[in-house]
């Protein structure tokens, strides 16, 4: 029962890839595939966190700003203050954890809509990054060139970069956490019904805190990856990424109202957006804004599909009686 939405996403991706290959014979190469992963590494990481939030019935609008804040924080710490990169990474991830925990706590304790709380978080993080610096700060630390030089060479000329590997590791770990642990089961439970989950004895408050903490930490990690990708920290980076990641999650078959979804679907949702972008680059004449337009159409199609499937499920009428012997 849980498969179809993901399966449809997978089919859309495969068909899209095939169409691109028909038009551009060079498309089907490990190089394109590896670049797809590298270019969308930060989005894949942040969308994994978003998947947990949305399945639990929430939303996190702050992630784009957290990415921007992270790049500025890391760049300034390394370049201005001379902090070793790894120490700067640890510091920003702790800061993000605290930020996410605070949002989760506010949502739970004051029973406020996640939309509003994380919207406030979005303004706060974006504003704070402008406060630190309004200019783009290049990062020249040796670690950065080491990381960007590192890659697993694939047959056919593709380079599986470090940040692509980080993203794949996050997705894999996220999938295990969501599908095979008590924590993951609780996330689905929260999305099913918050009140019922509480009545079943699940600590709803600490779950909420931990889910938003996870999302913010992954946004911080995405920010670090983004700083590797651009080798700079800039307060205007990753504007609107929260919406891209929500789109990826929904296209990946996760129910926007919570309770159903998967991490693998989200990865496919990210790759579909990347695929459209790559197609536009190959074409060379199209405006890159077509990415947004096609994403919008896909998003609409997927939500319509979900509603249709829910409708069919409801109309299916009497539910299974179960085999009862008395």
């Amino acid at each position: 029962m849980r498969l179809p939405p993901v399966a449809i996403t997978a089919i859309v991706f495969v068909v899209g890839f095939a169409l691109c290959t028909v038009q551009f014979p060079n498309f089907a190469s490990t190089r394109v595939a590896a670049n797809l992963l590298t270019d969308n590494a930060f989005l894949g990481i942040v969308a994994t966190g978003m998947t947990f939030v949305i399945i639990s019935g929430g939303i996190d609008l702050s992630v784009g700003s957290v990415i921007g804040f992270t790049t500025v924080f890391v760049a300034l710490a390394i370049e201005r203050l001379g902090v070793p990169p790894l120490v700067a990474f640890a510091a920003i991830l702790l800061l993000c954890a605290a930020f996410g925990a605070a949002m989760g706590a506010i949502i739970h304790v004051f029973d406020m809509p996640p939309f509003i709380v994380t919207l406030a978080g979005m303004f706060l993080a974006r504003g704070a990054s402008f406060l630190m610096s309004t200019e783009s700060t290049p990062i020249t630390a040796p670690l950065y060139s080491t990381v960007s030089d590192f890659a697993l060479r694939l047959p056919g000329g593709g380079r599986l970069t470090a940040i692509a590997l980080i993203m794949l590791a996050v997705v894999a770990a996220g999938a295990v956490l969501l599908h095979f642990t008590r924590f993951g089961a609780n996330v689905y439970a929260l999305g099913g019904s918050r009140a019922t989950t509480a009545l079943m004895g699940i600590p709803v408050g600490s779950m909420t805190v931990r889910i938003y903490m996870l999302s913010s930490v992954l946004a911080g990690l995405a920010g670090i990856v983004f700083s590797f990708y651009t080798a700079a920290g800039y307060s205007l980076s990753a504007v609107g990424v929260e919406l891209d990641s929500i789109a990826a999650v929904v296209i990946g078959g996760t129910l926007l109202t919570g309770g159903q979804g998967s991490v693998v679907g989200t990865l496919l949702g990210v790759l579909i957006q990347g695929l459209i972008q790559t197609y536009i680059n190959f074409d060379g004449t199209l405006s890159s804004w077509w990415t947004k337009i096609v994403t919008g159409i896909l998003l609409f199609a997927f939500i319509a599909l979900q509603q249709a499937m829910l409708g069919i499920a409801r109309r299916a009428g009497p539910r299974k009686a179960g085999v009862l012997k008395s």
């Binding site: 295990v176 095979f180 642990t181 008590r182 089961a185 609780n186 689905y188 439970a189 999305g191 099913g192 019904s193 019922t196 989950t197 009545l199 079943m200 004895g201 699940i202 309770g259 159903q260």
Partner: peptide
């Protein structure tokens, strides 16, 4: 007061699933 979106088994054992190394033994 159970969760319609979870499996029957998850509903029966939510919060006290048997685990090994932190993973639920489905």
């Amino acid at each position: 007061n159970l969760l319609q979106n979870l499996s029957v088994a998850q509903n029966l054992y939510l919060g006290r699933q048997p685990t090994r190394f932190g993973l639920v033994r489905e």
